[in-house]
Design a protein around this nucleic acid. Sequence first.
RNA 1: GCUCGGAUGGUGGAACUGGUAGACACGCAGGACUUAAAAUCCUGUUCGCCCUAAAGCGAGUGCGGGUUCGAUUCCCGCUCCGAGUACCA
Length: 1133
Amino acid sequence: MDYQFRDIEKKWQQFWAENETYKVSNNSPKPKYYVLDMFPYPSGAGLHVGHPLGYIASDIFARYKRLKGFNVLHPMGYDSFGLPAEQYAIQTGQHPAITTETNINRYRQQLDNIGFSYDWSREVRTSDPAYYKWTQWIFMKLFNSWYNLITDIAEPIQNLIKTFETSGNIGVQAVADEDVYQFSANHWLQMSETERQRILLKYRLTYLRESTVNWCPALGTVLANDEVKDGFSERGGYPVEQKKMMQWSMRITAYAERLLQGLSTIDWPEPLKEMQRNWIGKSVGAMVDFSLSLTPVLSKEEGTKGEGFEKLGYQTADPAIWEILKQNSKANRQNQTEAESELWQYLQGSKIGYKISRQHAVGTYIADFICLSKGLVIEVDGGYYDTNSENDKLRTNALNQLGFEVIRFQNDEVITNPNAVAQQIKQMLNNLPDRKVLSFEEDLGEANSFSFGEGRAEAITVFTTRVDTIYGATFLVLAPEHELVEKLTTPDQKKEIENYIAQTKKKSELDRMADTKSVSGAFTGSYAFHPLSEKEIPIWIADYVLAGYGTGAVMAVPSGDQRDWLFAKKYNLAITAISDAQKDLNQQADPTKEGRYINSDLINGMTYAEASKALIKKLEETGAGKAKINFRLRDAVFGRQRYWGEPVPLYFKDGLPYLIKESEIPLILPEVDKYLPTESGEPPLARAENWRYAPVQKVLSFGEDLREATSLSEGENRVEAQAFDYELSTMPGWAGSSWYWYRYMASTEDRNENVFAPNKAIEYWKDVDLYIGGSEHATGHLLYSRFWNKFLKDLGYVGEEEPFKKLINQGMIQGRSNFVYRLIDNDGLSTNTFISHGHISKYKTTALHVDVNIVHNEILDIEAFKNSRAEFNDAIFIFEDAKILNSLSKGESRGETYICGHEVEKMSKSKFNVVSPDDIIEKYGADTLRMYEMFLGPLEQSKPWNTNGIEGVFKFLRKFWKLYHDDDFNFRVSDDEPTKAEYKALHKIIRKVEEDVERFSFNTSVSSFMICVNELTDLKCHKKKILQQLVIVLHPYAPHITEELWTLLGNKDGTLSFAEYPKFISEYLVENEFAYPISVNGKTRMNLNISLSLTQAEVENIVLNNEHIQTYLDGKNPRKIIFVKGKIVNLVV
RNA sequence: GCUCGGAUGGUGGAACUGGUAGACACGCAGGACUUAAAAUCCUGUUCGCCCUAAAGCGAGUGCGGGUUCGAUUCCCGCUCCGAGUACCA
C-alpha cells in the first residue's frame, strides 16, 4: 500500500498511549537525561503552528537520547493559572476552572496528534490544588526564611530568632528592609509579639512592601504594564494612574550576586545571559551624601495623633534617613565630648533607675541622651553641635510635637558637677508620666513635622557609578516620589512641585524611561551642600529619575550625562566641564573617561582610575560617602489583585501576617459570585463568603480529595470568634512555574507522599539537561526559577545551584498574512471587484486580509473565496494575466490566477493568518508536520510561517516509504549485502544526524535525509542491512512512519523507541580521490580528480601539466602555489 | 541612545574552524505518461553578456573600505530589519 499516514499515525499514537511506551522510571541503570519544554498556558485559541516548534525539537532530542541509551524524562504540563481565563470569566461568568479544563483538553488532543513522546503520567497543572499546595508550601518556606550574608545562604527564621534572643540584631548581617534599627537581646525579649513580628517581617524573604502600581479606578483593579496604553487601560480605555500599594514582595535581590555568578556556569545562549546580566545590573559605584541646608521647615500641623506603640517606642527615627542617622550616631558615640562622656558615667546601666540611651536617633536628628520609656531628651550643649539658640528652640518644638520633653545642660555645668546633673535628670523622670510614642512607620507624614538641621543628620543620598564626575555635579535631581520631596519644597515652590507630581502620576514607568529626548522637572526651592566643594547646589525633581532605582536621587552632572545636560540647558543650570578631554559641551554632554580632570579641586590632573580611588578614600574619611555595589534588580512584587491564581496561605492578626499551619495547605481557592473586584476596590477574593481563617483544634489529614480538607467536617471545631481575614491577593503567574520541573521528577506513586518531590527522585534527576523555550522568558520565568531553585537548595531540599544546565531558545513563528485588493471606484466606494497583486499599481484599491488557508503559493482559491462570505459570492476578478481574462468568454475558467499580496505579521485570529497544526496534519500527517517545522530553518531564528515547501517534505516521506516497497507497494526488502555506495549513503546520514542533533541544527539533517533517500533511490537500494538502520536514524524526526516500517521489517511492536542508534563507521566514508577545485588567483577555473595519497609536489606537477590550466597561466610560472589537501589548489600568478 | 541578533536566487534556506557560494526543498519553465486532470517521472533554473546550441566571459552573499593566495565567514565604517533594555544613577 502507498504511504497511508492517517492510519499509521493513529495506530501508533494509540499504541504508545495504551502501552505507556514513554512512561519513565526513576530506577534505571541507564544514565539520566531530562528534556523539558517551557510549559504552555492553555489559551482558548488552541495550539497554532508556532507552539510545536520547540516541542518538536525537544521531542527529537528526547527520542534521540533514548536511542543513545539514556533514561529520558520528557514531561509536559500546563501553566494553567492566568489572566486570559479570568478575563473570559469576567465577560461570561464561566468559572475559569471550567474554561481552563476545556482548553487543556483541546491542547492535549492537539499535542497527541503530533506524536510527542511525553510521559503523560507526570503531567502537572499549576491550578490543581494538589500542585499549588506545594507552591504555597514554598511560599511558606520563603516567609519563614531570611538571607544571612555571613553564610551567604537563606536560613530558617528560627535561627535568626535565636540570635535575637541571645545578642539582638547586633552582628547580624542580613538582606533586609532599609529601616531596621539596632536592638539588643534585652530589647528583643521585652518586645511584644506584634513588635517582634513586625521586625521579623523586615527580614523574611517574602514581605510586605509598598510598591507603585498601575491603578485603574474605573476597573477597580491593578493593570500590568502591557495592559496600559498611553496612560489608559487597553480594556475599556479608562484612565490609569500610578498608585502606591502594600504588596507582597520576594527578596530576589538577596540572590542578585549568585544569580549573576551562576550565569557563567550554565550553557545558555549568550544573548540570553547578557539580558539577565543587564537585568540584574550590577554596578560598582559610590553612595554619596549631599547634606541639606540648615533651613528649618516646620510643619503647620499641630500636635500628634497620639497613635503609637503601647510599649517602648524604639522606632523613633525617621526611616527615610535611618541609614544616615545610624552611621552618624555611631560616629558621634566615638566622638563624644568630654561633658557627654562624663555624664554617661552617671547615666549608663540604669544607674538612676531609668534606662537611658545615648546618641539615639529621634525624628531626623540625633539626641545626646534619651529615656525612651518617659520620653525625655537630654541635650548637652556646646558639644558636637554649635550652640545656636534659634535652632535649639526649633528642635525643642519639634520634639515636643512628638511627645518628648527636652532638658538642656551646658557643658560647664556637666563637667563641674555631673552627679548633680544626673540627679536633676532622675527627678525629672520621676515626675514624668510614661510616654506614648508615635511610630514613624505608621505615619510617615508626621516625620515632616520635625526640624531639620542637626549637622549631618539630614542628607540626600545618591548612588553614582561615576563618582569621578562629582565636581561636575551642579544640582541634584530627585524622583518625584522621593520621600524628602515634600519636606524640601519651600512654600513658594509648593504649587509648581505639586503640579509636576500630578503630571508624572499619569505617566507609567515605561513611558518615563522611554522618553529620552525631552526632560522636564520642577525646582523644590531647597539647596544641598556639595560634600566636597561645600557649595550650595539646587535640588530639583524630574521624572527621568525613578524612585525604584538606586536611591531615587541622582547628582546631576550635565557635562557628562546627556539627560542632565538637557535638563541643565532647559532650566538654565550650570554646566561645568570636568575633563580636558570633553568636547563640544555646548552641543551635548560628553561622558568620556579619557583625559585629565579639571575644575575638580582634589583630583585635578588625575586619570579616571586615580580619581575614582582618591575620591572614594576622601568620601569615606569625611563620612560623606562610601564605595558601594549596586544592583538594578528590584525585589519582585508577588501579589496580584486577581482571582485566578494561588491563594496566599496567610491570615492577618492585629494587622500582621501569619502563616496558616503547614497541615492546612492547600488553601483552596474559594468560590466567588463574580470575578471582579469589590465595590470598595478589594480583590475578588473578598467576595468569597465565610472565607476566613479559624484555626482548627484538630489537625486534619489530607485524604484523596484535597478540597475536602479545608471544609469542616463533623466534630471539628472552628471558633468563629477566632476567625481572621485571609490575604486577599493571589500569587502571580510566575509562582507556579518557578519550581514545576521538580514536580515532574516525582512519579505518580511518589505524588502520594507528602512532599513536593521525594529526595530520591531529586537526587536521581538532579536538574534539567536541556530546556527549550522562547527568549521572552529571559527576565521573568528564567530568573525567578533560578531564584527559587537557589532558595530550595539553601534549605537543603534540592541539590543543584542551577536548575537548567543547557537552554536553547526557539525563534518565534510569525504569521504570514495574505491580502486581496478590492477596487475602489471613482466615487471612492468599495466595489466587489478584486485586482490581482500584479496590477494593483494601476488601480485604487484597499487591501483586505484573506484567510491564508484558502491561498496556496499566493494563488487564491477562487471558489473557496467566493464561498467564504456571502458578499463575495458574485465577486469579479481581474486576474494576473488580464489578457487571458479579456479573451475568455464568460464561464471559462482557464488560466485564471489571482495572485495575493502578503505581509509578515503576528499570528492572530483577526489577521486571518492563524494556521493550526490540525489542518496540516489532516492534509499531510504529523510526521510531515514535524519534519517540515524543522526544515523551515534554524530553530532559534524567527521566521514567518508558510507552507510553500511542505510538499517537498511530504514527497520525501513517500519516497522513503517506497524504498521499502516495490512498484506495486508490496513490502519488499532483501537480505543482500549492500554495496559500498549504499553503506556510504547510510553512514553519511548516521554521522550527519549525530552531529546535527548535538548542535540543534535540525533543519540541516532534514535536508540530509532527503539527500540520503535520493541516493538510495537512485541506487535502487532495498536492502535490509541499510534500511533497518535508516529507520532508527529517522525515528526521532518521523516516529510514526518509522514505527510502522520497523514492524514490517519484522521487529517487535514498540521496540523502536529503545533500539540502539547505529554506530558510525568512518571507513565507509574514506575517499581516495578528490575533485580538487583548481583556482588561479583565487578564481576557480576547473576541477581535477586527484588521488588523495599524493604529496603536494606530485599534485602541483599534475596541475601545472594540465593543458587547460596552462591556458590560464599564459606561459608564466606561478609565483606561489597554495595546496590544502582535500580542499583546494590555488595558483598565484 | 545602548546591547544583542540578522540581511545569501522568485521563496525557505545550505556552506560547521577563511578553501568549489547557492546543497536540499519550494516555485517556475519545458518535456514524458494520460482523452484530460491529478499523481508520478525527466530536464533546466543566481543574474548579465554572447548564442541555434555548446563553450566561454563578466558580476554576485545589504552598502563602502580593509586584511588574505583566497572572505558569506575576519577587521573598520555605514544602511535597513528584528528583539531586548533604560540608559548615567
